[in-house]
């Protein structure tokens, strides 16, 4: 074997950096959609590397549902400052007021779907022509079908039956006015690849990814953090558990995992042997129908 050989993480990194640079070169107003979760944190790390020694040449955009973990928001502000990027925050709360949207009801009333309205408004407000997201193809079967450069029409919609051919590493970012492209630089990474990369690069993460004590209720086998955003019923029993989060979404729709893993090493070891998928273990919102994600993506979701 020659010494001119990249291991798999180096291959994935090189591919992602290439995609980031392609976005910067082909578009006038790109943005990186930042959630505070590990996938978008990995995106920021890759973007830093792609444009070093310069700064990331586009803003970080956070669509804030108002239901975030405080630790994730704290981390978001710290990271934007650390990398010297512009941070744009747009709140779902404001969209709900302006557009007189109906707040979802129920025990775990999630604003997840409403984010799409705020996202599309934000794209229009700043005239973003490319939005970079941290979706991975291994996450979910609608995502498994998506191109790296994915065209959205002027209503933000994805047409999965009519995707552009995407050949070799040649990316066609041509669009008409009003359309935009969603770009997914870590399409080919798996959850474990992301964790291995975070460990290899020693990337700091929000504290909720590591074991901590938290008040939770148990609901259909999942542990949900007690917060002002969920309805606690009389039948609910609040218990203290040692937990960590495997994904970071809204407090209303992200479940915790019981764990004592307190270091990156321990977390990665646990993820490597788990038999349940990331979304299956931690997301309450994907279970509704078999095509839940496909429908949300068609409507303009991340």
């Amino acid at each position: 074997m020659s010494t001119y050989h990249l291991n798999y993480l180096e291959q994935l990194e090189a591919e992602s950096i290439h995609i980031f640079r392609e976005v910067a070169a082909q578009f006038e107003r790109p943005a990186l959609l930042f959630s505070g979760g590990k996938d978008s944190i990995t995106l920021v790390q890759l973007a830093r590397k792609a444009f070093a020694p310069g700064k990331i040449p586009f803003p970080l955009v956070h669509i804030d549902t108002g239901h975030n973990f405080p630790e994730a928001l704290e981390y978001r502000d710290w990271l934007a400052n650390e990398v010297g990027a512009t941070l744009i925050v747009r709140k779902v709360e404001d969209t709900i007021k302006q557009k007189k949207l109906t707040e979802p009801k129920g025990k775990f009333a999630s604003r997840n779907w409403l984010q799409t309205y705020t996202l599309l408004d934000t794209i229009e407000e700043f005239e973003f022509d490319a939005c970079i997201g941290g979706a991975r193809r291994d996450e979910e079967k609608a995502r498994a079908k998506e191109r790296i450069f994915s065209v959205r029409d002027e209503f933000g919609q994805w047409d999965p039956k009519l995707q552009r051919p995407e050949l070799w590493n040649i990316y066609n970012g041509k669009i008409h006015k009003g359309e935009n492209i969603r770009v997914f630089p870590i399409s080919n990474w798996t959850e474990l690849d992301v964790w291995n990369y975070i460990r290899a690069e020693n990337i700091p993460l929000p504290s909720i990814y590591f074991s901590h004590e938290r008040d939770v209720i148990e609901h259909e086998g999942q542990l949900i953090a007690v917060s002002p955003f969920i309805r606690i019923d009389e039948s609910d029993v609040i218990i203290k558990k040692q937990v960590r989060y495997r994904t970071v979404g809204d407090m209303t729709c992200t479940a915790a995992v019981e764990s004592f893993a307190a270091t990156l090493e321990e977390v990665v070891n646990e993820i490597a042997v788990t038999r349940i998928s990331e979304r299956g273990e931690t997301r309450i919102d994907d279970k509704v129908t078999e095509a839940a994600m496909e429908d949300r993506k068609k409507g303009g979701y991340f």
Binding site: R137, A144, K145, P160, K161, Q163, E290, A291, E294
Partner: peptide
Amino acid sequence: GLRAEREQGITIDVAYR
């Protein structure tokens, strides 16, 4: 992965695994 694919029992676009 797509609704239309499951309905028709065919594969329309590439799925990555």
